[in-house]
Design a protein around this nucleic acid. Structure first.
Lengths: 245, 245
DNA sequence: TAAATAGTGTCTCTGAGACATTATATT
DNA sequence: AATATAATGTCTCAGAGACACTATTTA
């Protein structure tokens, strides 16, 4: 099979013959602040939904990048750092009326992403946001977010909770080196309930490559000094962790 | 917070001020034919990639539907039936050069979907396809599909394989009523290896609501007549099935 | 009766839940 | 010494792998 004739087809093709779509990205950026799972929200500085809290995001640059590149670019702008944490596509939201610009003839679809990071620096307000802050996910229910961002936030939260069961992404929420107590607090924050201490240790240490022990201990608060660990190479927990409750 | 001023903003908004995106859907439709997991492909009748095998799909109708509705519409057109099987979003592919129409100024993003069904009728060629057939996924590696459809096919296949571990979607591959041997053949086809017969039965029957026994048996081929079952209400297998190999 | 398919029983091992116990630090 | 935190040990039970065995039909 060849692609004969395609060149001529493209020469005659009119990209403006059909009503336009726009492609955006939205980011659900999670971190753990004061023991609480939190999500970054920005207050929108421009229309539509001016003044509303929303997920950070922006437009995919036409012809220059794909949605992932756009999301990573926004992530760097919003969090102001070279990104090391976990990053994955969540889903695409494309209801015609999810963005009021449909009234002006623009159908806006958005690819949502989930990002996890440890101890992010305080967020930077972007070009289209006059304010940015981390919200504990517990308080999220009371907020009326822009667009369909409440739905995206709910889906993102469930994705994170599920991922902790069968992947090692929990280690992305702590800075290296970390103690097993640190890692356990991640599970407690994300699942809303701490797994049993002894069984947690046994599980984590039995999954090869989940964590790698260092030969150091942390200065004790009160009590025995805890062993320090780094992230291992493993990505999957098999058999999976079981979520309590 | 109110949305004051948004109306005026929208009145002045020019949807054509920015270069256009198009939004399409692509479908990875799986079924089991002759004991082999198979995927529906169509031969493209128009540019671009005319004459190439591709996933069925099409454009989201601007302002009228979201990607899910478009995918369901294409599914109905392509398979020519009221759809009952499993259906879920896979991921969105948006690389600028995934569709050559970028050369004419159109950036085409596509939301891919996975659909599972039992014993589909022979496929119908659509408006943009002069041919359609199911391909065993084993033979798929030899095909050079249109666009980035090889990648989408690989991702879809892995999604299906993974989903059989922790959900009951395998029952969507068989017609009711079915025997446990039928269901086991689904796992054998998707995973490429049959789970142990006795352990398979024990697992399926121990998950409440996976299958519901009827009070009938199927006419025996040779041997004891098998018990017939229907799909249960359960959606998750917990703890999950373990994929052999 | 032999062969084929359906279905049951059981031994063993892994791993998770529950919880008691030991270790090592600070105050 | 009392207390707080870290780490280990152990009993029990659920469930998965392996595989032998029984049941019911056709040829």
């Amino acid at each position: 099979v060849t692609r004969r004739g395609e060149r001529a087809f493209l020469t005659g093709y009119d990209a403006h013959a059909y009503p336009p779509f726009a492609l955006t990205v939205d980011l659900a950026i999670f971190t753990i602040r004061d023991g609480q799972l939190s999500m970054l929200l920005v207050r929108r500085g421009g229309h539509p939904y001016r003044g509303f809290w929303a997920l950070p995001g922006g437009h995919v640059i036409h012809g220059k990048e794909d949605a992932e590149a756009a999301a990573r670019r926004e992530l760097a702008e919003e969090s102001g750092l070279d990104w090391t944490g976990h990053f994955e596509q969540l889903a695409t939201y494309s209801s015609p009326d999810r963005d009021p610009r449909i009234k002006a003839g623009l159908h806006v679809a958005s690819v949502a992403w989930v990002a996890l990071a440890a101890d992010l620096p305080d967020p930077v307000a972007g070009t289209d946001a006059d304010q940015a802050r981390f919200w504990p996910v517990e308080d999220l229910g009371e907020l009326d977010l822009a667009f369909d961002h409440n739905q995206i936030a709910v889906d993102a939260l469930e994705r994170v909770r599920a991922k902790l069961e069968y992947t090692t992404v929990a280690t992305q929420f702590v800075t290296e080196p970390f103690t097993l107590a640190d890692l356990r607090r991640v599970y407690a924050a994300v699942w809303g309930q701490a797994p049993d201490l002894a069984n947690f240790r046994r599980k984590v240490l039995s999954v090869e490559g989940f964590v790698v022990p260092t030969d150091e201990t942390a200065p004790p608060i009160a009590g025995r000094p805890p062993q320090l660990y780094r992230r291992g190479e493993a990505e999957r927990i098999d058999p999976p962790f079981i979520r309590p409750g």
